Amino acid sequence: MLSALVLVQPAQAQTPSQPRNLAAEETNRKLVVDFYNRVFNQHDVAAIPSVVSDGYKQHNPLVPDGRAPFVNYLTKRFQENPQARSEIIRSATDGDLVWLHVHSTANPQDRGRAIVDIFRVKDGKIVEHWDIIQFVPEKSANQNTMF
């Protein structure tokens, strides 16, 4: 019969979190909101280099890492969907992260997608991005909207 000895390390004592710098968080939120409206609503991909770092890290599996691939991806997307719009419903911050809750549509007839975009900002540039995307259904089991 085999037996195993498992050593468990005691949990590390948690240090108190750093106090939030709400002014810096608001600066980051404004940077991301302005960027998002300019790029995703005005389709101004030329604005991307001034806000997105060259080493931009992307967690959306459809888009490669880096600023140039991001520009290429959005350029093609906006050419294929010239009426695409993304309405920011709400935003939030925590440290260097900015969250956007967005209603994205390809055209006025599209029910769209509910998106949560999360951006990490460092030194005044967007350096990382995650998103969670869900299609807006025609019918819902409840009376609540997705927004």
Rank of each mutant, 00 (worst) to 15 (best):
G95V: 03
S3C: 04
I133F: 10
H59C: 10
L5R: 15
Q18K: 14
V98G: 02
V45G: 01
F40Y: 13
E25M: 12
Q18V: 00
T75H: 04
H129K: 07
M146A: 08
I88E: 09
E80L: 15
W99S: 06
D94C: 00
A24P: 02
Q58N: 08
N60P: 13
A23Q: 14
N41D: 13
N60I: 09
I126Y: 07
G112A: 05
H103W: 15
Q42A: 11
R120F: 06
S17V: 00
H43P: 10
S17E: 02
F78A: 10
A68L: 09
G124C: 06
I115N: 09
E25W: 07
V63W: 01
P64I: 13
K122L: 00
K30D: 09
V136A: 09
A114W: 10
R113D: 00
H43C: 01
G55R: 04
A106E: 11
H43R: 10
L31S: 11
R20I: 00
K122V: 00
L31W: 12
A106D: 01
L7G: 03
T105C: 05
D65H: 04
A114V: 08
S86R: 15
E138M: 15
Y73G: 02
M1V: 12
P10K: 12
Q143V: 13
A46Y: 02
K57H: 06
V136R: 14
D65M: 03
T15Q: 09
M1E: 10
M146I: 09
L100D: 13
P16G: 01
V33I: 14
P19Y: 12
R120W: 05
L7Y: 06
H103V: 03
T105F: 13
L74P: 02
P69C: 09
A92P: 08
N21E: 09
I88C: 05
L31R: 14
A84F: 11
N142P: 15
H103I: 06
V45I: 15
I126V: 08
D123I: 02
A92L: 04
H43T: 00
D44I: 07
T93A: 06
E25H: 11
A23C: 11
T15N: 02
I88L: 06
I48Y: 05
A47I: 02
E128K: 10
N21S: 11
D44P: 05
Q14W: 00
V8D: 05
Q83Y: 12
H129M: 01
D44H: 12
Y56Q: 04
K57Y: 07
I115T: 08
V8M: 08
V51G: 02
V52D: 03
Q9V: 04
F70D: 07
D65C: 03
Q79G: 02
P10A: 07
R113C: 00
N37V: 06
E128G: 05
N72C: 04
N107E: 12
Q12I: 01
E80W: 15
E138H: 15
N142V: 15
V39Y: 09
N72G: 14
I88Y: 13
P61C: 11
T75E: 06
L100Y: 14
D96L: 00
D110F: 14
V98S: 06
E80N: 15
S91V: 11
R38V: 03
D94N: 01
L74C: 03
R20L: 03
N28S: 08
I126L: 10
S17Y: 00
V6T: 12
D65K: 08
P16M: 07
Q134W: 12
F135P: 07
Q9S: 11
D123Y: 04
S53C: 00
